[in-house]
C-alpha cells in the first residue's frame, strides 16, 4: 500500500499546504488578489517588506521591462509597522493563506522592535528578514552582505521570535554558502535564496535611465539559473536547513528544478504580476510531476539530481577533417 500523495511541507516549524509561496512585494495588501486566486490553495503569502515607520517609496518611474525580466525599485513603500499590523496584516490573513511577514530596516534596533511587535500575533506564521537594504548604522550599502552584521541582525530576530525566521540573502553577493551558514548559526530556521540583485535599466534610443532612483533590482525568469546555483550550493553544504528558492520561478517545471536542486519550497514573485494565480498553477505543475514520478511528497524530489548525460560519440559525433 502506498502513502497518499500530499503537497504539505514543513519548513522547520511552519507547515504549508503547498510548497509554493507568493514572494515579498507581490502578494498585495489583502484586497488585490480576491477573486483572482483561491488563497487557501497558496502555500503562503510573504507580505511586502515592512519598516518601522511609513515609507512613501521611490520616485517614478519604478519599473521597466528587460529581456526575461523586470528592473524595478519601489523604495520599500509601506504604511509602517503599526498601521500594517492593525490593517493590512489582518486583511491578508482573512484570505485564508498563511502569512509570512517580511521585515526590513537600517539598524539593529529597528529589526528588534519589529520582531517584538509581531510576536504573539496569531496571523504571523513566520518572519522573513529583508537584508538587502542600506545599513544606516554602519554606513554600508547592503546590510546583509557582511557576515558580522548578518550574524547580529539574524541572531537578534531569531532569539526573540516565537515563529520560524527565514533570512532572505541579498542577491549579487559573493559566498552565498558562507552567508547562509552564518544566518543559520545565528539562529535562522532557514534561508530564502535570493533577493533580487542590483540592476540598471536604460533606454538607448532616448539615451535615458529608465528608473527614477537611477538603480533598481532585477526580477523575473532571467534569475532562474542564479537561483538554482545558490539553492544547489547551500543545500549541498547545509542539507538539513530549509531552503526556499526565490527568483525566476514561473512554471511548475521551474519549481521542480528548484526542488531537485535542494529547495524545500519556492516563491513566485514576478510571475504573479502577470498571472495572479501563478502560485496555484505552479503547485499543480509540481503535483503532475510527483504523480508522474510516483512520489508522495515534494521532499521526494530532493536528492534525485544526477550528473549530466555522458557526452558520448552518439550524441556528439566527432567530425573528421
Amino acid at each position: 500500500m502506498t502513502a497518499a500523495r500530499s503537497l504539505v511541507v514543513d519548513l522547520g516549524g511552519i507547515v504549508l499546504p503547498t510548497p509554493v509561496m507568493i514572494a515579498a512585494g507581490c502578494g498585495g495588501t489583502g484586497r488585490e488578489l480576491v477573486g483572482l486566486v483561491d488563497l487557501r490553495r497558496v502555500g503562503a503569502i510573504v507580505s511586502r517588506t515592512i519598516t518601522v515607520t511609513e515609507r512613501v517609496g521611490a520616485d517614478m518611474p519604478r519599473i521597466a521591462e528587460s529581456p526575461a525580466g523586470i528592473v524595478w525599485e519601489t523604495g520599500l513603500q509601506n504604511p509602517g509597522l503599526d498601521p500594517f499590523v492593525s490593517g493590512e496584516l489582518l486583511r491578508l490573513a482573512r484570505g485564508g493563506a498563511r502569512i509570512v511577514v517580511s521585515i526590513g530596516g537600517g539598524s539593529l534596533e529597528e529589526y528588534v522592535h519589529m520582531t517584538s511587535v509581531l510576536q504573539g500575533r496569531p496571523e504571523v506564521a513566520a518572519i522573513e528578514i529583508h537584508l538587502s537594504g542600506r545599513d544606516d548604522e554602519l554606513d554600508r550599502d547592503v546590510l546583509g552582505a557582511h557576515p558580522d552584521r548578518l550574524n547580529e541582525i539574524v541572531g537578534a530576530v531569531a532569539r526573540m521570535s516565537l515563529v520560524p525566521v527565514f533570512a532572505k540573502l541579498p542577491g549579487g553577493c559573493d559566498d552565498v554558502v558562507g552567508l547562509a551558514r552564518t544566518a543559520v548559526r545565528a539562529g535562522a530556521t532557514g534561508v530564502t535564496l535570493l533577493a533580487s540583485p542590483p540592476a540598471l535599466g536604460l533606454d538607448a534610443t532616448r539615451e535615458r535611465l529608465r528608473i527614477g532612483t537611477v538603480s533598481g533590482w532585477l526580477s523575473g525568469p532571467a534569475l532562474k539559473p542564479i537561483t538554482l546555483r545558490a539553492v544547489f550550493d547551500v543545500a549541498q553544504a547545509l542539507p538539513d536547513v530549509p531552503v526556499i528558492a526565490s527568483g525566476g520561478v514561473r512554471t511548475g517545471e521551474d519549481a521542480v528544478e528548484c526542488l531537485l536542486a535542494g529547495a524545500w519550497a519556492v516563491q513566485v514573485g514576478t510571475a504573479t504580476l502577470t498571472d495572479p494565480a501563478a502560485a496555484v498553477t505552479v503547485a499543480q505543475g509540481i503535483v503532475r510531476r510527483l504523480n508522474a514520478a510516483g512520489l508522495t511528497s515534494p521532499a521526494g524530489l530532493r536528492g534525485r539530481l544526477r550528473p549530466p548525460e555522458p557526452t558520448g560519440a552518439e550524441s556528439h559525433p566527432v567530425s573528421t577533417p
Binding site: G25, C26, G27, G28, T29, R31, E32, L33, L36, R48, V56, G57, M60, P61, R62, I63, I70, W72, T74, Q77, T272, L273, T274, P276
Partner: peptide
Amino acid sequence: EERMGCGFGLCNTCVVP
C-alpha cells in the same frame, strides 16, 4: 496613462503622489 506593472495593485510601481 502611467506605465503599469501588474495593473491590479500588487507591484506598487505605477504610483502618483
